[in-house]
């Protein structure tokens, strides 16, 4: 979690409530760009594209699908950081973590 040095003044974004504000602002803007579909004549190349909010729905679902599938991909391909024999040397700038660091073949 946050490791802000002691004594340093918190920034606007350090306040959880302000992060919420950013999120709700995004929700509001999203609603506006869907409503915008009502106010111009849409040039659609195929029927689906002409639907109100088609790109909004597509963007949301594509994103969720991408992340969900990627999480599945992790199960298949993820290995320890030093899996390859020629992996980069341990980096002094990286924090010590309980990295198994294993050569899990």
């Amino acid at each position: 979690m946050s490791k802000r040095p002691e004594g340093e003044a918190p920034r606007w974004l350090d306040d959880r409530k302000n992060v919420d504000k950013v999120f709700y602002a995004l929700v509001a803007v999203c609603a506006l760009v869907v409503l915008a579909d009502l106010f111009y004549e849409k040039k659609a190349h195929f029927e689906l594209e002409g639907w109100i909010g088609f790109h909004a729905g597509f963007g949301f679902l594509a994103y969720v699908g991408l992340i969900t599938l990627s999480k599945g991909l992790r199960k298949l391909v993820m290995r320890g950081e030093r899996y390859y024999p020629d992996a980069p040397e341990p980096n002094p700038a990286d924090a010590e973590v309980d990295d198994e660091g294993g050569r899990d073949a």
Binding site: C30, A56, A62, I67, R74, L76, M78, Y83, Y84, V97
Partner: peptide
Amino acid sequence: LFAALAFGVMLRTGVYPAEVRSTNL
């Protein structure tokens, strides 16, 4: 914006995958 919204929702619900030190085959 809706892709960004999806990110926001997934992050807030804890569904968005955390970064992990790893090698991906």
